[in-house]
Computed example of a mutant assay.
Amino acid sequence: MNSIKTKKYGPLTGVTFSETYKNGILKGCAFNQANHIKTPLGTLIPNHGESTLRNREGLSLEFFRSGQIKSIDLAAATGVATSLGLLSAERISFYESGSIHRLFPLNGRINGYWTENDEYTLAEPIAFDLLVGDFTAKIVSLCFYESGALKSLTLWPQEIIEIKSPDGLIKVRYGFSLYENGNLKSFEPALPEPVDTPVGIILAYDCNAHGINCDQNSVTYGQDGTISSLLTSNSGLMVTTSGSTQLVQPVMKPGKIDPEVMIPEPMTVLFHKNALEIVQDTVIAVDLLTSQVRSVLVHDPLKKACGNCSECSHCG
Results as ranks from 00 to 15, higher is better:
Ile163Ser: 03
Lys164Ser: 14
Pro166Met: 03
Pro166Asp: 02
Asp167Ser: 09
Asp167Ile: 04
Ile170Ala: 08
Ile170Arg: 10
Tyr174Thr: 04
Gly175Pro: 02
Phe176Gly: 00
Leu178Ser: 01
Tyr179Glu: 00
Asn181Met: 08
Asn183His: 10
Lys185Pro: 04
Lys185Leu: 12
Phe187Gln: 00
Glu188Arg: 13
Glu188Leu: 10
Glu188Ile: 13
Leu191Glu: 09
Pro192Leu: 02
Pro194Met: 12
Asp196Thr: 15
Pro198His: 07
Val199Asp: 00
Gly200Thr: 08
Ile201Leu: 11
Ile201Tyr: 08
Ile201Trp: 08
Ile202Met: 07
Ile202Trp: 01
Asn208Gly: 10
Ala209Val: 04
Ala209Asp: 02
Gly211Gln: 03
Gly211Leu: 01
Gly211Arg: 01
Ile212Asn: 12
Ile212Leu: 12
Ser218Asn: 11
Tyr221Asn: 05
Gly222Leu: 13
Gln223Arg: 15
Gly225Asp: 04
Thr226Asn: 15
Thr226Ala: 14
Thr226Met: 14
Ile227Lys: 06
Ser228Trp: 15
Leu230Arg: 03
Leu231Asp: 00
Ser233Trp: 01
Asn234Gln: 11
Ser235His: 06
Met238Ser: 14
Ser242His: 15
Ser244Gln: 14
Ser244Pro: 03
Val248Arg: 05
Pro250Ser: 11
Val251Glu: 12
Pro254Phe: 03
Gly255Glu: 12
Pro259Leu: 05
Glu260Leu: 11
Met262Ala: 12
Met262Lys: 15
Met262Gly: 07
Ile263Asp: 01
Glu265Arg: 15
Pro266Ser: 01
Met267Cys: 06
